[in-house]
């Protein structure tokens, strides 16, 4: 059984789930069924569809490329185990997979807190080189440093909704919180990012 169902969360989420139009349509359903039968083409397609997303999620959550690879790999291995016994209609496979990857990220973040020596070096942006303007790479690094400085749950909400493109109901389900709680985290996270990046004008990169 998948670890996440759409029925969890606050009253809003339950109201949403009760509406007939909210019957879950999973775009991955056919692919998962074929993966469960060991179809090599389906395996390739699922890797192409999910592995980059999982790696990006883990990288933004952990700011460590080696740990991000470990998390992405482990999440995909769990997807292989789950595929033959996946029950369609209870949750989207993508939401379940995000939940798995996030739990793996939490484990590593918890370990870092327990053993401070495990923490990756703090991302400190030292500014662009004196002989050039703010290049796109510099902006990217600034944004990553600002994301890494957010509290974990705010960072998670921003990454799920903005970078991973999950809808509010899917993101709330993946985080096992209500939609209201998700909105609160998202709003605070974006406000903090706006403050942290206030000195960068849109389109300043490449000048």
């Amino acid at each position: 059984m998948p670890g996440v169902t759409i029925a969890i969360g606050g009253p809003f989420l339950k109201r949403e789930a009760e509406r007939p139009r909210d019957v879950i349509v999973d775009p991955d359903q056919d692919l998962i069924r074929r993966v469960g039968r060991g179809d090599p083409a389906a395996v390739q397609a699922l890797v192409a569809r999910k592995l980059p997303r999982l790696l990006a999620l883990a990288q933004r959550m952990l700011s460590d490329p080696v740990e991000a690879e470990d998390v992405a790999q482990e999440a995909m291995l769990r997807a292989w185990k789950q595929a033959p016994r996946w029950t369609p209609g209870k949750a989207r496979f993508d939401t379940w997979l995000h939940r798995v990857a996030l739990n793996l990220c939490y484990d590593r973040l918890r370990r870092r807190r327990e053993r401070p020596t495990d923490a990756p070096p703090e991302q400190v942006y030292e500014g662009p080189a004196p002989d050039r303007g703010l290049m796109a790479l510099d902006v990217g690094r600034r944004v990553d440093a600002a994301l890494a400085a957010l509290p974990d749950r705010q960072r998670e909400a921003v990454v799920l909704c903005h970078h991973q493109g999950l809808g509010n109901i899917e993101a709330a389900a993946a985080m096992e919180i209500s939609v209201e709680a998700l909105e609160s985290l998202l709003s605070r996270g974006r406000r903090a990012l706006r403050t942290a990046l206030a000195d960068i004008r849109p389109g300043a990169e490449g000048e």
Binding site: R37, G38, D39, P40, V43, V47, W80, L193, R194
Partner: peptide
């Protein structure tokens, strides 16, 4: 702010990672 968030670079899976994942995938009967 959306445009700034889009500037965050996304890593791309290495061939080695892809190979490891595919090697562990379910096999046909």
């Amino acid at each position: 702010l959306d445009a700034l968030l889009d500037a965050s670079p996304a890593p791309w899976p290495s061939q080695a990672l892809r190979d490891r994942v595919i090697a562990a995938a379910p096999r046909p009967s």
